[in-house]
Amino acid sequence: MRSVRSLHTIINKDGQLLRKQPSGRIIAAFAHTEPAETTEPPASFAEVEEEKPPQKLNTSRLLPQHRKMLREERPYSEPHSWIHTTEKYNRMMFGRYGLSSGVDPRICFPTKSDLEEQAEYERVAFPHTIPEMIEINKKAKEEKRAQIRKREEELEKKLEKLDQWKRELNAKIAKKEAEAQAAKERKERLIEEVRRHFGFKVDPRDDRFKEMLEQKEREDRKKTKEAKRKAKEDKMLAKLQETAKGMNEKDTKGAASKGQIEDKD
């Protein structure tokens, strides 16, 4: 029914034309439902139907463009929308319907400016040639390897000294501990002495105890000082004695040699 209605509109639109040329062509147009191609319409619809009854009636109810697509033809021979004038659409028409689409295949190819743009893109996006890229990769890899090697060497050098450092550290710790132990023992000894002095257990927080402890500590300090001084003196003495002894020996030797000389004379 759609096709009949569409035909009606054409007849109404170009009423004069229809009256001019009576022919059977409208039947064909009717059958194919191609209103665009009805350039030579007949005088009137009723007249034509009386003359030649339609042989083949399109009852598909498809729109003409869809019917064309079904027959793998270009749907619109003339642009129906601004989209149909675009390059992309026309390329697609050629791609789909080939040379029969009536599109000049030259539009499928890039223009000179397109090619220039493409070349510029490639120049910017891929600035290096393949051998250059290989070289860059190789260099980067070598650099990384060199860095690793350098770090490993550093580590090896440090590892050599590790034992020594360990020993030093252990000695330091041991010394500290010994000192702490000595101080503790001394304190205990002093407390014990104070207790012995009083003859009974005194609370370490007691003032008497504290006083006594201070005194003892003072004494102790004095004693240590004295011991230190004595040790120093002893050392000096020993040194002096040694030098004196050496001098003596020299003297005796010299005397002996002198004596020999004298003897010779």
């Binding site: 390329r91 697609m92 028409m93 791609g95 599109v103 499928c108 290096h128 393949i130 860059i136």
Partner: peptide
């Protein structure tokens, strides 16, 4: 791709 009516593209070099 062919039905787009566009030339066959050129293969680009691989990234670094």
């Amino acid at each position: 791709w062919f039905e787009k009516g566009v030339p066959i593209p050129k293969r680009m070099v691989p990234p670094l």
